[in-house]
Computed example of a mutant assay.
Amino acid sequence: MGSESRDTDTRQRVVDAALGLLEREGRDAVTTRAVAVAAGLQPPAIYRLFGDKDGLLEAVAEHGFATFLAGKRVDPDPEDLIEDLRGSWDLAVGFGLENPALYMLMYGGTSHSGSAAFRAGLEILRGRVRRLAAGGWLRVGEDLAVDVIHATARGAVLTWLSAPAANRDPALLATLREAMVGAVTHERPAVRTGGGPAAAARALRAGLPGQTILSSAEQHLLGEWLDRLADEE
């Protein structure tokens, strides 16, 4: 076995040991010395592989993102886009409730910009939002919808975990989920897109004269583009 492979196996052993301490005893228990003992290593090995305790915690958080990503169920063509959105939100919240200590480490104020698994999960969410937009369901812009969906799921979990167990009301989760759905989607498609882009263009073209955001020149140009799309059959 090469040194790179041995390092990979050792890294995973250390991450597993740190995760076990995190889940059993909390974040404060995850010290380099305690993790080294749990993994059957000397403390210098932790520093060689992860740099310091912060590097180790980042690796544990990345493991959490990767585990969550592996559990995502992605239907490329869901029958009901709104129920697909609800299901994905429930899955994200459920992961947090089932892995409280790990979730707090993943989302408790740390940056996710360096996490490949987090970015991959975000792209899956963007794909769901894009399908909603293409189907005429989206009430807000795609970027805002992604932020709202992600923020409400994260906020639901962190609020739930921060409350005393006796005060946790399951209605909180359902209420936040439905508030999210209502904020980012229409009750029915704003544009019927069964006819493809041409049908969507006709619907938008019909509503164009009543808008006041565009200048007359911009409205004229957009009208020409929509006319060309509407004629494409």
Rank of each mutant, 00 (worst) to 15 (best):
A101P: 02
V184R: 09
A133E: 14
R130S: 13
L138W: 01
A66Q: 13
G195K: 01
A38W: 00
V157W: 09
G223F: 08
L19N: 02
G155D: 13
R119Q: 15
T212K: 11
A17E: 06
Y107R: 12
G207P: 03
Y107F: 12
V129Q: 08
A199M: 08
A34M: 04
I124G: 00
D77E: 15
E98L: 13
E224K: 12
L122D: 09
A190L: 15
G2V: 02
F95R: 03
I82S: 02
D84S: 15
A145T: 05
E62Q: 13
S215W: 01
E58C: 05
V129S: 07
G20N: 10
A156H: 04
G64W: 01
D80Y: 13
D147S: 14
M106H: 05
T10F: 00
F68L: 13
N99L: 03
D75F: 05
L172A: 11
R33D: 01
A179Q: 11
E79L: 13
L97K: 02
L158F: 01
R130Y: 01
P164E: 05
R126V: 02
V35N: 08
S88N: 13
R128I: 02
W225I: 10
L57Y: 04
Q12S: 11
V30I: 07
G71L: 12
P164N: 06
P78Y: 04
G71V: 00
A38N: 05
V191T: 12
A203H: 03
A179Y: 00
L138P: 04
W225C: 08
R6W: 04
G51P: 12
P78H: 05
D143L: 12
